[in-house]
Design a protein around this nucleic acid. Structure first.
Length: 497
DNA sequence: AAAAAAT
């Protein structure tokens, strides 16, 4: 199919052509006609599949007629991160260049003045992150009663980030008569329920489920002691043909540390995480996209949606804490049919996380060793856990003051680690698993391989954390947590009827 | 256990 047959007007087509595209991607081919017809759409797709243009192009077409009044935007797009919001804004600039649509980008970290000025002039397209959008609404700078098209992008990410109450609140302020487009990379039950609430008789559009990602991406992982991680990474950077790469850390602090270390070793690296000033974030991302920086050390702020053309490598300097995040991080490469390579540098404690990832992507990640660095083994998890309760009881009998002092001591981890390293069944050593076949030793393996389904409920997560943390000294309520503390917070506004 | 987003 060609773009010219999809139902878009000549101006939009000209802009698409100028950008160098002739053929719509599958998601565009499926979604655009429905959006043009005014239907609600439920889209299951990751960015890089052309998802953004699948709503920006028809939106430009629909909004071409009519004009926005002051403070009354005609469409609203919500994005989970500032970078994604900026990316969508760029998309409207590119494809809306032959139209005179007013657009405002409402994100945190930038001054209110310009954003308010734009709203006063009247905007056709409002692109926002939830926090700033609600802030401006409460200040009376936005009226949402004229919204014709509402887009929720990256809904699963919004859920992860705890934005859903905000989203429900915003939806309650929108007119009931509107068109809603809802996109999510994954469709867990909680997201589906949300979609059912927001959408009316939607057309469902779905492309490239996460599992197929592995077709274009070569995975590998290595296991090293934490102290060896940086040299392992440097070795990979030197031996791989790295054009440009994202390097993910789990903590912002480690992003900064690794960035410094790489620069010290002469690599052309930048850093990106959410505690950096917005101006710096924008600047660094631009420099990386232009190729002025070849390595970008980042937190999960960049894990989803960020679109960098032709990214050759993704490195997980830390194993992602949630298996889905692996899929999202890796999804930055191997896009648009291009090949990509992904390396994970795990440490011996992360066997459980790796097992959860293997289960999710339905394949083992090949284990590689790196010259000059000792290949470690995963610790036996169940073994360690069995030993823990005893220590907990001991700890309880100690005086609280002693506990305080013990905590401030530098942690001496050598002993327990050496003990577990000798444990009998290293996870990594198990034979490759034949696909979907019940095996007699399955039960046994489940113990190690167990990974709970992704549970997003924050309270649940806290509860689990407390269960796992047997070593932790119990203060305050002790094991008993009153039920009211575990109850979910209610959304501020009742969801739409 | 961490990151993101409002100041």
């Amino acid at each position: 199919m060609n773009f010219s047959e999809i139902g878009l007007g000549p101006e939009v087509l000209r802009a698409v052509e100028d950008a160098g595209y002739t053929q719509p991607t599958p998601i565009q081919e499926q979604a655009i006609p429905w959006v043009l017809q005014g239907r609600d759409v439920l889209g299951c797709a990751q960015t890089g599949t052309g998802k953004t243009a699948s709503f920006t192009l028809p939106m430009i077409e629909i909004l071409a007629n009519g004009r926005a009044r002051a403070r009354m935007p005609r469409s609203l797009i919500l994005e989970p991160t500032r970078e994604l919001a900026a990316q969508v804004a760029e998309n409207f600039e590119t494809y809306g260049k032959h139209h005179k649509l007013n657009m405002a980008l409402l994100i945190g970290g930038e001054s209110f003045g310009d954003q308010i000025k734009k709203l006063d002039r009247g905007v056709d397209v409002l692109i926002a992150t939830p926090g700033r959008m609600i802030d401006l609404f409460e200040r009376g700078n936005i009226l949402l009663s004229d919204i014709k098209i509402f887009v929720i992008d990256e809904a699963d990410r919004m859920l992860d980030m705890g934005f859903i109450p905000d989203i429900e609140r915003i939806v309650a302020l929108l007119p009931k008569m509107r068109q809603t487009l809802f996109f999510s990379a994954t469709m867990p039950p909680e997201i589906k329920r949300l979609a059912d609430n927001f959408l009316m008789n939607p057309r469902e559009v779905s492309v490239s489920p996460p599992a197929s990602m592995a077709e274009t991406v070569t995975h590998a992982m290595t296991i090293v002691q934490p102290d060896d991680k940086r040299s392992a990474l440097r070795h990979l950077l030197k031996t791989e043909d790295v054009k440009n790469a994202l390097i993910f850390c789990n903590r912002k602090r480690d992003v900064a540390i690794l960035h410094k270390s790489l620069e010290k070793h002469g690599f052309n690296a930048g850093a990106l995480h959410g505690d950096m000033p917005q101006s710096k974030r924008t600047e660094t991302l631009e420099a990386f996209k232009k190729g002025e920086i070849t390595l970008l050390v980042c937190s999960d702020v960049a894990a989803r949606g960020i679109d960098i053309a032709g990214l050759s490598h993704v490195f997980n300097f830390d194993t992602p804490l949630h298996a889905e995040d692996y899929v999202h991080r890796i999804g930055r490469t191997g896009r648009a049919g291009k090949l990509g390579r992904a390396f994970t540098i795990a440490n011996p404690e992360e066997g459980k996380q790796i097992a959860a990832i293997s289960k999710l992507i339905k394949r083992e990640i090949p284990l590689i060793s790196i010259d000059g660095i000792d290949l470690a083994e995963f610790e036996e998890l169940s073994d360690r856990r069995r030993r823990r309760p005893a220590r907990k009881d001991e700890a309880r009998r100690d005086e609280p003051r002693k506990e305080e002092a013990r905590r401030e001591e530098p942690r001496r981890e050598e002993e327990p680690r050496a003990a577990v390293a000798r444990a009998p069944k290293p996870v990594e050593a198990r034979p490759p698993r034949p696909e979907r076949e019940a095996r007699p030793d399955r039960e046994q393996r489940v113990d190690v391989m167990r990974s709970e389904p992704p549970r997003r409920d924050r309270d649940d997560r806290r509860r689990r954390r407390e269960e796992d943390d047997d070593d932790e000294v119990v203060i305050g309520f002790g094991d008993h947590v009153p039920a009211f503390l575990l109850r979910r917070a209610r959304p501020l506004a009742a969801p739409e009827a």
